[in-house]
Amino acid sequence: MRSCTRLLYGVVIVLAASATARAAEDAESIVVYSADKQVLRTFTYEELRTAFPQHEMETVTPWSKGGAALRYRGPAMLDVLAQSGLPAMVTIKFGAYDGFKAYVKTEEINAYQPILALEIACAPTVIAQNLCSKPGDFRPLKLEEHGPFLLMWPLDKMPDYYSPQRNSIWVWFVTSIQPPD
């Protein structure tokens, strides 16, 4: 019985390591698909960080602790969509690493101007851990911070009633962009 338990424990460790490695691989890009599931474009993290103008957004989030606003940086979602190869659409489907799908209306993107957050401003506690050198610096979003690609909305610019009804538009660990099914 003990050897079965050890074997099962070993399998769990291997599977967890495999999932972590797969997450690290997938964390490097976002794939844009056509309606017929053909790859139109792949955006790497580095391309999203260097080939697009970077925008900063300071906002609270539905999951902010104590209502604290954080600063995020990344390309405007409108800019990414303009370079995606997708035709103009009423709704866009965003896929996340965990299989989550969010259907976002283009009018929402036009109205609220979300960014594809790649980085977060360094907090004093992070600087103390030597993850950043000084206040004002930005660092890549970690998985536990909903990175590496986070569809970030300016919550303070949205109507109060909006977010609870549309919390699904906050997509963590975006992996794909495509037309709806």
Rank of each mutant, 00 (worst) to 15 (best):
F100G: 09
A128L: 13
L118M: 10
L143I: 13
Q129A: 08
A76R: 06
A88Y: 05
K105V: 07
F94P: 01
R139Q: 08
T125H: 09
F100K: 03
A121N: 07
K142H: 13
P87A: 05
D79S: 03
V126Y: 08
A76M: 11
G95H: 12
I127T: 14
P135H: 08
S84Y: 02
E144V: 05
F138D: 14
L141Y: 00
C132H: 15
A111W: 13
N130C: 12
L131M: 15
F138R: 12
A102H: 13
Y112N: 02
E107A: 07
P124D: 13
K142I: 06
M89K: 00
V90S: 09
K134S: 13
L81Y: 04
L143M: 05
T106E: 05
I120T: 09
T91K: 14
K142G: 15
A117I: 05
F138N: 10
G99P: 00
G95D: 14
L143Q: 05
Q113K: 11
F94Q: 05
P148C: 13
A76F: 01
A82W: 00
G136C: 06
G85V: 03
G147I: 02
N130D: 11
L81Q: 04
V126H: 14
K134E: 10
E144C: 02
P75S: 08
F138V: 15
N110E: 12
Y97P: 02
T125Q: 12
V90W: 14
V80Q: 01
Q113S: 14
I109N: 02
T106W: 07
